[in-house]
């Protein structure tokens, strides 16, 4: 097994440079061994976990809980509850905009990578979009772990220099009249976008509205679904 440090570049299909994510890394690369780069990495991770478990540094059961937490419990459904409550409860919306972390904690979404959350509100004249150009900072308690594109070079490079072009990549044309406001999360403040409530939802319950709130609408790279898009 090669040390990870000396493994040849594993191809653009997996690199942070792009936002593709395929398991097949054989295309266009010469290998003098039978293993794909992926299996090299996989073997290395297995060896690492075995060694750290033998040393008593990690408990595999704790690893299972960590994975299960972010695969099944913490994700954008949480953020959607926050947004839907803000759409239906004006006092909550005010608290949310005044102190994001405290208002979000009312729904019991707290903790790691959400210790200091600021909520930024979209209006007809201003559209907000969140990025972390330096790494991958993201409000975990309300959105879960970030998608690959959010961590990729195309997004991290262009979100600040060409935000309208980035929105175009998402199939979203922002009105030229609307200012675009980009928040680069360079410290431990995490940003959550409060999108505008879609028209045609008068009288909807918070529960029903939450189904309209997409992950991307809370990052600012998309809009909530329209009423006709949900059953």
């Amino acid at each position: 097994m090669q040390p990870l440090d000396t493994v040849a570049p594993s191809g653009l299909s997996s690199a942070i440079m792009s936002n593709h994510h395929h398991d097949d890394h054989h295309h266009g690369h010469h290998h003098d061994h039978d293993h794909s780069e992926l299996s090299e990495t996989e073997l290395r991770v297995r060896a690492l976990e075995t060694i750290l478990t033998q040393k008593g540094y990690v408990d595999p059961a704790a690893l299972d809980v960590l994975i299960e937490t972010y695969e099944t419990k913490v994700g954008p459904r949480n953020g959607a509850q926050v947004v839907a409550k803000a759409w239906t409860d004006p006092a909550y919306r005010q608290r949310l905009l005044a102190d994001g972390s405290a208002a979000i904690a009312e729904l019991d979404y707290v903790g790691r990578q959400g210790e200091h959350i600021v909520v930024v509100e979209n209006t007809p004249s201003r559209h907000n979009m969140v990025v972390c150009t330096l790494c991958s900072c993201y409000p975990w308690p309300v959105l879960g772990l970030p998608p690959v594109w959010y961590k990729s070079a195309p997004y991290r490079s262009r979100a600040v220099s060409d935000p309208r072009g980035v929105l175009h990549d998402f199939g979203f044309e922002l009105s030229p009249e609307t200012e675009i406001r980009v928040w680069d999360s360079t410290a431990e403040i995490r940003y959550l976008v409060l999108p505008m409530r879609p028209a045609g939802t008068d009288g909807w319950s918070a529960e029903r509205l939450a189904d309209l709130v997409t992950r991307d609408s809370m990052i600012g790279t998309g809009l909530p679904k329209q009423p006709h898009e949900v059953a």
Binding site: S18, G75, G144, P147, V148, S152, R156, S157, D169
Partner: peptide, 26 residues
């Protein structure tokens, strides 16, 4: 990376899973 040119378009992945391989989970 802010403002660095040449990385190309952003390609969102529909219905993206939280992890793409078991080794990523671990």
């Amino acid at each position: 990376m802010g403002g660095v040119a040449g990385f190309g378009p952003v390609r969102p992945e529909p219905n993206e899973p939280v992890f793409h391989a078991e080794w990523e989970r671990r």
